[in-house]
Computed example of a mutant assay.
Amino acid sequence: MITQLKSKRSWLLLLFLMPGIKTYATGPVVKPDSLLQKAYILNIMHRVADWQINDWNTNGFKHAKVDWTNAACYTGIYALGSIKNNEKYLTTLVNIGNDLGWNTGRDRFMADDYCIGQTYSLLYTKYKDKKMIAPFTLLADSIVNKQHDEPLEWKNHIASREWAWCDALFMGPTALSYLSTATSNPQYLDTAAKLWWKTTDYLYDPAEHLYFRDGSYLDKKEKNGKKVFWARGNGWVLAGLVRVMENMPANYPDKKKFEKLYRDMAARVASLQQPDGSWHASLLDPESYPVKETSGTGFYCYALLWGLNHGLLDNKTYWPVVKKAWAALATSVHADGMLGYVQRIGASPDAVTENSTEVYGVGAFLLTGTQLYQYLNTHPVAAKN
């Protein structure tokens, strides 16, 4: 059930009495209003981004620079870098692009390997340097011209050819959609939409308004007997959904259909929020994974804030949800800027700890913070409610 925090006292109860909440970011005492101050939001985003970039610079990239894990992180770094006076973060991304020769991964038609294309397209839109999208444009043309006529059963390495797993909906259609905007070529967006619905027809459960991770999960059950719906997996979908919609013209033929899917998923996700403000690794069996999980929580909070910022969700219902989610996220940041409680790489619900972190969790956190910063620019009174 969606509940609303009605007072500062409620915020204090949320922060200090909820299980699993620790206040790494702000010390032993947190003033509830400070979490929603723009200066605080910008500061904590800086700390998280700087920790991640320093970790890359000091310890090297744990995954290849072109890898989907880092590509998801780049989306958040780009969002932060787009805020005025934060251009240094864009410079970091340009340097990475130059190091990669603006190429995508080796597995040409696997969505993971061209997830980075969305950041290339965003950087091109800003700097108008054609080298930034030249290699990806050639790949995208071949994706547009591909038949895409294989069934999506999870076998025969299908992920190398089709969007056969729900995570792909953050990786593939987003890359094509941002390229469509960057080049004013509607073919890329049309292909993204067509293939989105192909994946949805196979993996979306219309009764639950959630996506199975892939075909191998269609008949699996959690310990409590309910269906297996992975929090981050559906986070990939909901975040990917808003990033595709962000590139749709107002009169796009499928726009209303995408918006209905978004509202249905948003309502379902909001109804599954846990008392600690987060979403646990398993959406329908949170008791088996009793600790908050920040990558799924981050992607949900980002996508819901995007809906508030674009007038697709009503403030009375969803602002309390994102406010609680942001508290769960912000209090997961360690004193040095490391984001904790991020589930490791996987395909299903798994355990997390306060010290587990990953780059895609950082990306989700920065996407969320940027949307929250934007929301408070247009709804300044919200910080006090």
Results as ranks from 00 to 15, higher is better:
A111V: 04
M245W: 10
Q4N: 14
A347R: 15
T183D: 08
C73A: 15
E153D: 15
D129C: 05
W279T: 00
D285P: 08
Y341L: 00
L5Q: 12
Y375K: 00
M110H: 15
L100H: 06
K323Y: 10
Q274E: 13
M1I: 11
K260N: 13
A49V: 07
A250N: 15
G311Q: 05
D190T: 07
P286D: 08
M265K: 06
T58K: 15
E208A: 14
Y360D: 01
A327M: 14
Q274L: 07
A164D: 11
G60L: 09
D214N: 11
T75L: 08
V94H: 12
L123Y: 03
D112T: 04
A192S: 09
A328N: 03
P151T: 13
Q37L: 10
F61W: 14
L312P: 04
L36E: 09
L367I: 03
R232M: 05
W165Y: 10
T137D: 09
K292Y: 10
F109P: 03
H63K: 14
F365W: 05
I158A: 09
Y127V: 00
A383C: 09
A79T: 02
N247P: 11
K324V: 00
E354D: 14
G60R: 10
D167T: 03
D112I: 01
L90V: 02
Y373C: 00
W319A: 02
Y74C: 02
H148A: 07
L308M: 04
E208G: 00
E358F: 13
W68N: 03
C73E: 12
A134P: 07
V29F: 15
L5Y: 11
A239M: 05
K65I: 13
N251S: 14
P253M: 05
S82M: 14
D112W: 07
Y252P: 06
S121G: 01
S7W: 11
V237P: 02
Y120L: 02
L241R: 01
H46M: 00
L15E: 07
T317N: 05
V144D: 06
S295P: 05
G337M: 09
G363P: 04
A111K: 00
A330E: 10
T199W: 01
N234V: 04
R268Q: 15
R213T: 11
A192F: 04
E287T: 13
W236Q: 02
M248W: 11
Y318R: 03
L93G: 01
S177M: 03
T119N: 03
L261Q: 12
T75W: 07
Q187S: 12
S34A: 13
Y211T: 01
S184V: 06
L123Q: 01
P173L: 04
D67Q: 12
D107A: 13
A364C: 05
K292F: 08
K146V: 00
S288M: 10
I116R: 03
R263Q: 14
P19K: 13
D141V: 00
L36P: 02
L35V: 03
P151C: 07
S288A: 14
Y360L: 02
L12S: 13
S216T: 12
N54E: 14
F299G: 02
Y373M: 00
E150Q: 15
P135F: 06
L238W: 06
L12F: 15
H334M: 11
I21E: 07
Y302P: 01
T297F: 05
I143S: 05
D67K: 09
D214A: 04
T174M: 08
R106H: 13
I77A: 01
Q374P: 02
N185Y: 10
D205P: 04
N43S: 15
A182I: 00
F212Q: 02
C115G: 07
A72G: 09
H148K: 08
